[in-house]
Nucleic acid binder design. Structure first.
Lengths: 230, 230
DNA sequence: CAGTGGTCTAGACCACGTG
DNA sequence: ACGTGGTCTAGACCACTGG
């Protein structure tokens, strides 16, 4: 440990927790003390500790001090990959293939979820994401035309709606839901599998402040896995 | 914007990106300039920018400056919940129910994945996580006895193996894989569903440095969803 | 009340990598 | 070469909250 920076201190503290020196539930020394021990400024220790708190390894409270979490529920952080990138990473060719494109009133379960007027028309798009000639994933998307009117004339057989939207219509927040679902007739045909087969599914909805932009369901072909690190 | 702190600056910059003022791919002003503009020190701007980089909204390089990402692949961060917490959050009662407990040579696909000797014996545990009387998830776990010998005598019908391990045997790193899989006969019986039904599945393996600790597969009952925010 | 973490500042030096 | 971000320091003040 020649170099002293917040990385090395973070690592050192982490190891003292992992080694069992500081048991779950116990209070660890105050920043000032650690700064003295490691011979650096409190600022640096603070930085390391904040990162560890972000990791979910410790809990910090003013006045009460820093405590090793009873159950270190580490945050899992990962990127939800762009389908095109996933496919191209395998060396295959990516192409979006439009199965359905229409403008119509959204079904009730969509309007209800998004607090839209029932009469409102949305842009509806069903796309097969192709890896070479095989279907890699099927996407069913609804777009708020008030937020992104130009999408009607976008070349969605060249650039996926997802990427087009990311570029043209920024979003500020959203939610993602992962689940497993059974293949519908349409998906079974696309993937050439049996109806009911288990498909990894991602539902994503994004907003710009309180304006709904888009919601979509993405179902991956059987065997797909999403990886993350702890 | 009365208060100036790294949070408010982060928010301000974020909004300038989301509003389209700073388009994807463009360089945004240097820290020093922004510090002057916002009337705060460069340190504060730096903090805000580093957070935005962690969010995946911008990319930073020395000398080259800070650029709005072409495709803002935001990192999705969330906690993988502890099964007991999920169940108790619904108001139900949690109980782990042991279906199988044995010490035996691991199957080849496990030893291969973990670079273990083929002869090595591992602790094997299959648990049903009960929400009141219903099965909420089924867990199939292998534990390295060299790393956690005491688990053999742990009261695993009171505390789940997961929580026991977290307390007794810290880990330093691991990986998680999410997928969808078809219910096996055992799972179909446990969940009282048909064989082949789609189950949300989490595979997790943890290590302490390079010592393998445990690997497990957790299959949730049909309809389970894992939520995250963007 | 007092001790803890949260944050800011001003200045400094360094690492990096582009041009 | 030099401009950019990465980081450290010392000191300061504040916000929170436990005792």
């Amino acid at each position: 440990m020649n170099v002293i920076n917040h990385h090395s201190i973070r690592k050192a503290i982490r190891q003292r927790i992992e080694s069992g020196e500081w048991q779950p539930g116990t209070i660890i020394p105050a920043e000032a003390d650690l700064a003295a021990e490691y011979g650096c400024s409190r600022t640096t220790v603070n930085r390391a500790m904040q990162n560890l708190a972000d990791d979910g390894l410790i809990e910090r409270k003013r006045r009460a001090g820093t405590r090793v979490k009873e159950i270190p529920t580490r945050q899992t952080t990962f990127k939800i990959p762009i389908v095109r990138h996933e496919i191209e990473a395998t060396g295959a060719n990516y192409r979006p293939h439009i199965l359905l494109k229409e403008t119509k009133r959204a079904p009730d379960h969509i309007t209800a979820k998004l607090h839209l007027d029932q009469g409102e028309k949305l842009f509806h798009l069903v796309t097969a994401h192709l890896s070479d000639r095989r279907v890699y994933a099927v996407e069913d998307r609804w777009v708020n035309l008030a937020a992104a009117p130009e999408i009607i004339s976008a070349p969605l057989d060249e650039i996926s709606a997802n990427e087009w939207l990311i570029r043209k219509v920024p979003y500020s927040n959203g939610d993602v839901v992962f689940s497993a679902s059974a293949a519908s007739k349409r998906e079974a045909e696309a993937f050439e599998i049996d109806i009911g087969a288990a498909l990894f599914t991602v539902d994503r909805t994004t907003w710009l402040d309180d304006i709904f932009i888009t919601t979509m369901t993405l179902r991956y072909r059987p065997g797909y896995q999403l990886n993350a690190r702890l």
